[in-house]
Write a protein that binds this DNA or RNA. Sequence first.
RNA 1: UCCGCAGUAGCUCAAUGGCAGAGCAUCCGGCUGUUAACCGGAGGGUUGUAAGUUCGAGUCUUACCUGCGGAGCCA
Length: 437
Amino acid sequence: MKQTYINELSQHVGAEVTLKGWLYNMRSSGKLMFPQLRDGTGIVQCVVLKKAISEELWEALKGLGQESALIVRGTVRADERAPGGYEIDVSDAEVVSPTHDYPITPKEHGTEFLMDHRHLWLRSRRQHAIIKVRHTVIKAVRDFLDNDGFTLADSPIFTPAACEGTTTLFEVNYFDDEKAYLTQSGQLYNEATAAAFGKTYCFGPAFRAEKSKTRRHLTEFWMVEPEVAYATLDDVMNLSERFLSYIAARVLDQRGEELKVLERDTAKLEAIVPPFPRLHYNDAVRMLQEGHERGEIETRFEWGGDFGSPDETYLSGKYDKPLMVHRYPAAVKAFYMARDTENPELALGVDVLAPEGYGEVIGGGERATSLDFLREQIALHQLPEESFDWYLDLRRYGSVPHGGFGMGIERCTAWMCGIEHIRETIPFPRMLYRLKP
RNA sequence: UCCGCAGUAGCUCAAUGGCAGAGCAUCCGGCUGUUAACCGGAGGGUUGUAAGUUCGAGUCUUACCUGCGGAGCCA
């Protein structure tokens, strides 16, 4: 019997269909029961009249627990009383596998319990909605870049050296002669592919061995990193702006139902359209200091540092669009950043701070082009130059201005969904103290 | 790593230093339109671990374990 999916029911009103799924919830009275069936595309309420089916089947259905696997045959009927607008008048059913004592009940649970049962938690309505939004964010990312002339050229996951700091690397003992690490960014490799293809991106997992315990951190997360040859800082900012706007528009267009489940204020997403406000680091510092004088911020921010989480929240709170802060002190940024010709102390980097306290969703900028300058920086940061030989070749052979950025998929998804913690935006989160399931 | 909070039934939580409790879930029974259905009944406990104070500790003290929130760091 051909399977019909719940999200297609509107095309089958009046027809007999076969649904295959799991029991989401069950209510029953003496001669009538209302099993709700879930099949991954939606949830539909079924109506079973005792007199419409056999005695054996009635008894079998009566004893079913939540998440029992079930095939149901019946007629589709539009009904205002049903959540979702459609109901199935059941004529026959088959119990594929009965279940009892499903751990996650339709009541409240704590985070630890739910995370221990993450493999089951994904079946719930809210988690289902979040992962669907994540899927759409990723699809939008790929469509935007593919349609904009970018070529996917993924970077390796095993790397011989740090890309940025060395303290946050996961070491792998496998390769005979040298230590290997899990990648924390595909950035350096992107610069090589950008010189080959012009506009490239990589998209994959990144690993940070940070002892971070906040709602914005995972030890394993997914990152998309576009890189463009001949791009300046302004080009990078323009690209970020179009990129984020495209993602928000796509989520609004295709995930309306899910945003409703998540009770997301969609006006916040509709506001994400170009142009985004752009703020020079110096002006951001001034705002923070004025905020301190007015008593809105506890500690006074001094020029030269990187913004802390409360600083970011304060700044982005002034706008209802993502805020682009550019030209940070070079001392707090990565070694490969290009310098501002007007003030060599400043790096041509940009952080895009999402509104509503979601923090930095994009970090990027223009890369340094001079061989001598990079050698100097590598020595200054006490990095092993031999590991960067191939990277320096990019400056030896046809070095041009170029730039790009990285965006964390989970942070972006959390922002789109309007949820508190990014641990819910990836099917199986890896965090400090969380390796299972 | 640092600061703060928490750990009691499968789950969410109560319990002045004095008999270990409720709702949900589970099991049994009832109900022909339920929306986290409802009504009646039953089973379910080494109060995170170890020590200490006390006639008596879920409750007070110390250490440890686990988790949560935040900071730093970052996307």
